[in-house]
Design a protein around this nucleic acid. Structure first.
Lengths: 117, 117
DNA sequence: AAATTATTTCAACTATTATTGAACTATGAC
DNA sequence: GTCATAGTTCAATAATAGTTGAAATAATTT
């Protein structure tokens, strides 16, 4: 909400704004809390290891993934709370200043409906 | 879900991945279906008109805003459905391949819980 | 300790995006 | 028509981001 949290959220969105990175985070999200090894991810995304590292680092800097080594492997996992907070930042204030709502799925539906049907 | 929809979603996220654009779409989202005139938006975002046009065009190309002229004014409005679909693309497959869920707010909570408590 | 597998780092290069201010176009008021 | 207001376009520049492959580091196996 502050001036600065907008800046931070924009950074996260920019990090997600690349096809490989978006595909990566979705794989990691689908994989659940256990995450995936970098190599597995590279294989699934059909990309070169060095490219994957480059992109995973951007995601890590943005706070969207974490990693830890387990023997030979480095596991990456999605930062779920950060992802969910981000989607909320994006649509959470939807229609806040409006009498109308944007539709049946409006995130702030019910919060201000004058309609007591 | 397809290879290509990922690419399209990444484009939208990249469009949102700039502080001014993110601030703009949030203002437009908060403004509801009626939208806001470009000048009003420029004033609220404290930015030069030409810069605002530049960024609004990116949002428009990405399908996140539309605009229409009303006399002297050009009104911009958020594309709510696109925004909501985007957040869903981002977290919709969360934990889909996992036995564990990422947390109490997991978007796919209930979809696969073996827990019949 | 040499070989193998997993991942990261680096450097050279290419490509894309953002910023700024001045000029331009569109509409409405006089 | 001329003036004021609202927005857009353009051109020059500055800044950032992405790609590639080869070399380096880390852990494991023999």
């Amino acid at each position: 909400m502050t001036h600065d949290s907008n800046h931070i959220a924009a950074k996260k969105l920019a990090a997600l704004g690349h096809p490989l990175r978006l595909a990566a985070i979705r794989q990691l999200a689908a994989a659940g809390p256990a995450g995936l090894a970098a190599g597995k991810l590279a294989e699934r995304l059909d990309t070169a290891p060095s490219a994957l590292t480059f992109h995973l680092q951007k995601l890590a800097v943005a706070g969207l993934v974490t990693s830890h080594r387990e023997g030979q492997f480095v596991y990456y996992q999605a930062e779920f709370n950060t992802l969910l907070a981000l989607t909320d930042h994006l649509v959470g204030a939807c229609c806040a200043e409006s009498d109308d709502r944007c539709g049946p799925k409006c995130p702030s539906a019910g919060a201000k409906a004058p309609d007591a049907d």
